[in-house]
Design a protein around this nucleic acid. Structure first.
Lengths: 238, 238
DNA sequence: CGTGCCCTTGAGTACAATCAACGTTCGTGG
DNA sequence: CCACGAACGTTGATTGTACTCAAGGGCACG
């Protein structure tokens, strides 16, 4: 849970007692293979999961067989904390790479709500941050051209991974193939391929073999019109 | 606050004490004119708002001047409950029609968190429902064609308004012009106009003068591939 | 060394944007 | 009462971004 605690501490003060409560909440560690769907839409949930390592996506499927990935979960994030109040999810949760998760029973979260209002508020903030990311993706999907959406995703992932020390040498691992990248961006795999070439030729970024190399952050940010305000990176006041 | 209580009761049991607490939380009623932006992105908030009547949109603006409306708030909804934990919003909140809101101070919500864990959970559920709607919109914006997105919005609004009795004779008021409709759907006003004609000719729906008339719900649902599961309409178990 | 997965490229198509103009309605003021 | 302007809706012509269909290439793995 170190990565989870680290991410929390990036935004909030955390007493040793609170940290203790969080660490004691985990009942089980589980591993999932790449492409495994480990939470299915509609099934009843009695626990939520913190992602310890690997990449996870929330996706919604269409009758036609295409799907939209609505958000990426990165190490340290909850993959389905909202399942605590929603009880059944409106989407699937799938591993995009081999990954490890920590299980927290909902009964434990109920206890938290009774005894740790501050922690409750911090986690409520967490689900609201997810919603803020959803809104930014709506903006991208609705109003920005493909190349800009793609640059934006690379910026967002850069910032979020940097929070937990997963960026080295201006590059980071992003174990998605071009089809999956398209499923995040609302693009077909063919168009992802062409757009990726454009970004490469522009000198902003290189993405191959599951690794992103930032060549020119300023150019990338500008193509994306990226403004990280929606990620609430600063120290929060409670 | 009747409409708010009614919406809560559609999904949850509510004790008289809880109802009492909610009603006593309102410190002020305020009216806003159409097109008035009453919460601006980035400004510090010390209260949240329940929409009592009228229509409100959350929107994000782009440097180019276009904007994306990321969700509609309908009577009985919070317009910015997430502002309680986020403190500053990543988007604007604007009246789409003349509207009336009830103000609830954040200090009151802090009290709620300490003394009413069940109510807290109900409102946490509320912000998670908002996120579920955001996800469905992401799916629409990323993967569905314009006509399907439009039909979907009409279906969603139908269901959500029906919850609070604002649907009569298979029709409801939706005070948006074609530009604003496009800002929800990621379409230009010109294309909205043409798509609206298609829907009209298909016999599914008619939208003019701010009023939606459902002519053939089955056809509309089918064009939209609408499945209301993501709206969590049933009775929730806590 | 064949099979499968992923990436790449080309050709043709379509959905939606852009640009431009005109129509309708309605409120305001001369 | 009519002229005017503003906001909104409608239509046509053209362009372009992204999709579809189709084929081939690289590479890892059994």
């Amino acid at each position: 849970m170190d990565v989870h605690i680290r991410k929390l501490r990036a935004r909030f003060e955390l007493s040793t007692e609170e940290e203790r409560f969080i660490r004691d909440s985990v009942t089980e560690i589980r591993d999932h293979a790449a492409d495994e769907t480990f939470v299915r839409a509609g099934e009843e949930l009695s626990q939520s999961r913190v992602l310890l390592s690997g990449f996870v996506g929330r996706h919604k499927d269409l009758p036609s067989g295409t799907r939209q990935i609505t958000e990426l979960s990165l190490p340290g994030d909850w993959t389905d904390l909202h399942g605590f109040t929603l009880k059944r999810l409106d989407h699937n949760v799938a591993a995009l790479s081999p990954c490890r998760v920590a299980l927290v029973p909902h009964s434990r979260l109920e206890l938290m709500m009774r005894e740790h209002p501050r922690l409750t508020r911090i986690y409520w903030f967490g689900t609201n941050l997810d919603a803020a990311i959803h809104r930014e993706w709506e903006l991208c999907l609705g109003r920005r051209p493909g190349i800009s959406r793609m640059a934006h995703l690379f910026c967002e992932t850069f910032v979020r991974l940097d929070l937990v020390g997963l960026v080295q040498d201006d590059g980071y691992d992003l174990p998605l193939n071009q089809t999956e990248l398209g499923e995040c961006l609302g693009l077909t795999a063919v168009h992802v391929n062409r757009t990726l070439q454009q970004l490469r030729e522009s000198g902003a970024i290189d993405f191959r073999g599951g690794r992103v190399m930032i060549r020119d952050m300023k150019a990338l940010t500008s193509i994306a019109e990226f403004d990280p305000t929606y990620l609430y990176l600063g120290r929060q006041s409670f």
